[in-house]
Amino acid sequence: MSTLRSIGNRTTVPFGHFLRFALRVMGDVYRLRVMQFFGEVLRQAGILVTGSVLIVLGLVFILGLQCGIEGAYGARAVGAPSVSGAFTALCDLREVTPYAFGYMMAAKVGTGIVAELGSMRISDEIDALEVMGFDSLLYLCATRLLGMWMVLPFVYIAAVAFGFVGSYIAVVNQIGEVSAGGYFQIFWQFQNPVDLLYSAIKGMLMATMVVLVGCYYGYYASGGPVGVGTATAKSMVVNIFGIHAIGMVGTQLFWGGNARAPIGG
């Protein structure tokens, strides 16, 4: 019984702590208190665009190529190379782009935030902010969250496009068993704007979670330079859990009861 209680305390207490932190940061954004540091918000958005976007798009592109070759070989196996567009449409838009986006956001942006905030915490810069009368949570975490929210929807659309281009290159140029027109006809039939919306919801939820987890682990880092490294590694574990949970629940919720494919009645 005591073991059970200790396991419970080890997992639920930090989770509750994290939830309270996340709600406070989101509340700061929602009540527009963050607008007093709007310059910092824009700076964080700019750092995201110049520093991370290309790498995120790179992973999506590589996995788009992957979807393309699997789709092309799979469609050839059933004797209908022209339907590889159906496979890549489902694979790119609904599943692989959100996952690749989430993974790379966690790897590049999430751990970057932990490293940055953690080193500020252990060199007492956050305490210095508090002494100067700044609300450090507002200045450091809420500005980052709003900065991400301003930029990421556009980045996500760009990521979807990169995945599509990757699949197109793999199916039409590399394997080359279907013409561009034949590929696009099936490809566009198997998706519609609602799918894009659902996919973007999944991607945005993952990205929001990644930023909040990154801020949490960085803001409460302790234990010197070594502690920053450990916190960075730990945040990655939490992110991997969260991304898969969001992906699985999202898929079940959005497409579980309805195939949303143009076949039959």
Binding site: G112, A115, E116, S123, G224, T232
Partner: peptide
């Protein structure tokens, strides 16, 4: 690079 170094390396 001290404090920030390890976090950046992991990143």
């Amino acid at each position: 690079g001290g404090a920030e170094g390890v976090g950046r390396a992991v990143n």
